[in-house]
């Protein structure tokens, strides 16, 4: 579906601050097109971010937007959603913001199954501070704080939130942007905690230290290494080594927190002593 993205953007706030070749703009485009595809009004969508390159997504989109402290966007979003259950709440975070400093908030938001859509832009690095390693920097890769290569293994963010109780989990990439848009649209229309990991590229902070000098090389890497969930079903463990799975992993319906709490309020108010 062709969408005039401009009407969802704060064009007077352009240019944005992202580096040439950054994948964040692609993810932002997918988000905006997904909202348009769903026919949501700009007034009913709230986009909340934390700190980092991912957090700069929401100043330039014309929804209700607020940027919060590092890693805490989901906690702000939890309070907001409980206060205003009728609003569509989207959190955009990154691999550092969402999984390192914000990791605790992420798993507890998933556990509560609160109706928030979280888009985690995974560019494998702390971009804004200049290329420090994150929980999603592949072992052996170089970063300014890993001059000899990282020694630590990574999370599988999707399996983490699935284990924590998320009721919608999916992964897309900046290269597979049509799929990404579809996954985000489904995540937003899903009732419950929905998580989409968007594998993206940071040519400046990650690529140039890790033998992928150009954005196109990085996107080619995404193309070459992505395997759809469907295709993976017919592949051996050996064949899947080093690949990233994309597509929908979880889509289930379970009681959602603000709905359950709404019921509690109605019951409490109908009892004697209620207002």
């Amino acid at each position: 579906m062709a969408v005039h993205v401009d009407r969802y953007l704060r064009l007077h706030k352009m240019p944005h601050i992202w580096c040439p070749g950054c994948g964040n703009g692609i993810v932002l485009g997918a988000l905006v097109r997904a909202v348009a595809e769903l026919g949501c009004s700009r007034d009913e969508v709230v986009v909340i971010t934390g700190i980092g390159c991912s957090a700069r997504t929401n100043a330039i989109i014309d929804f209700n937007t607020f940027q919060t402290t590092h890693g805490r966007a989901l906690s702000f979003a939890t309070g907001f959603k409980l206060a205003r259950p009728e609003m569509k709440v989207v959190v955009v975070t990154g691999d550092g913001d969402g999984l390192a400093i914000g990791g605790n908030h992420l798993i507890h938001s998933a556990r509560r199954n609160i109706d928030i859509t979280t888009i985690l832009i995974n560019n494998s690095i702390y971009g804004m501070t200049g290329g420090q390693h994150s929980p999603l920097t592949p072992a052996g890769s170089y970063a300014t704080t890993a001059p000899y290569g990282t020694l630590e293994p990574v999370f599988d963010a999707c399996r983490l939130v699935e284990g924590a109780g998320a009721t919608y989990v999916a992964r897309g990439t900046a290269y597979h942007v049509v799929l990404l848009q579809r996954l985000i649209a489904r995540a937003i229309s899903h009732k419950g905690f929905a998580f989409v990991e968007a594998v993206s590229q940071c040519p400046v902070g990650f690529g140039r230290r890790n033998k992928m000098r150009t954005p196109s090389e990085m996107m080619r890497w995404q193309k070459d290494h992505a395997v759809t969930v469907k295709a993976a079903a017919g592949m051996s463990r050996e064949q899947l080594r080093g690949k990233i799975l994309i597509g929908e992993f979880v889509n289930r319906n379970l009681p959602e927190l603000t709905e359950v709490y709404g019921r509690l309020i109605r019951e409490a108010q109908s009892r004697p002593g209620g207002e």
């Binding site: 939890t78 309070g79 959603k81 309020i265 002593g273 207002e275």
Partner: peptide
Amino acid sequence: PRVGGAFIQMEDEIASMAAVIGA
């Protein structure tokens, strides 16, 4: 809940302050 409000016990103190500001 009796007066139509909401209570939540958050995962930590940081999150509870954040949730209060969000609300």
